[in-house]
């Protein structure tokens, strides 16, 4: 196993650091798998995810970070709520997803989930809020999935649920700076000169 070969932090340690969840406590009862609403869309069951983090060798890490499961987890917390060991598999999924994203290991089949999240964040980064039209447009461009849900648009418009003018907030530059610091903590701020004008 990797952690016996090197002095690097094991995956379990990284997860503990990020989430406070010590996966060594997992005794593989399977209750998380049993209750997961998305499990049929996963290649690894939640309990297998926990097990692979416990193993933590190179092969396990590879399997985990490139798995479909991370992108199928909807964060419903059913697993966390029912875990008899009071662990938080949902938080472990979040942490693994983030690591997979940072390391560029998102599987092709899950690109749409990633694209949607990216489109969502892009929209928020630029305007401070999410607006359906720019979000959908951006998502469709990124994912090249032009046709799904198109039929819903007219009906949404009709019901006043698809405002065409994007919502923009006064502090959008401030929001952009928050994004920069979170996404790119190493890089110094370039938006400093704008600070004065967009403080509300």
């Amino acid at each position: 196993m990797a952690h016996t070969e090197t002095h690097e932090k094991t995956l379990a340690d990284k997860i503990l650091e990020r989430t406070g969840v010590d996966v060594r406590e997992c005794y593989q009862c399977g209750k998380c798998t049993a209750g997961c609403p998305m499990v049929q869309f996963m290649d690894l069951t939640p309990s297998q995810v926990m097990r692979l983090v416990q193993i933590g060798d190179r092969e396990a890490v590879q399997t985990l970070l490139s798995s479909q499961t991370l992108w199928s987890c909807v964060g419903c917390l059913t697993c966390t709520q029912r875990c008899p060991k009071d662990l938080d598999p949902a938080a472990v999924m979040d942490a693994l997803r983030e690591i997979a994203y940072q390391e560029g290991l998102v599987p092709d089949a899950q690109r749409n989930v990633l694209k949607f999240h990216q489109a969502f964040l892009k929209t928020v980064e630029h305007t401070g809020r999410m607006s359906e039209v720019p979000l959908t447009a951006l998502y469709k461009t990124l994912s090249r999935d032009f046709f799904s849900d198109v039929l819903l648009a007219p009906a949404m418009l009709l019901r006043g649920k698809l405002p065409l003018v994007p919502r923009v907030i006064g502090g959008r530059k401030e929001v952009r700076r928050i994004f920069k610091r979170c996404l790119d903590p190493e890089r110094p701020d370039r938006a400093d000169e704008e600070t004065q004008e967009d403080r509300p």
Binding site: C32, T33, T45
Partner: peptide, 12 residues
């Protein structure tokens, strides 16, 4: 009854 078969790695 929604359970799991952890040996087979799937829900039951």
């Amino acid at each position: 009854v929604k359970g799991a078969d952890t040996l087979a790695g799937r829900p039951v």
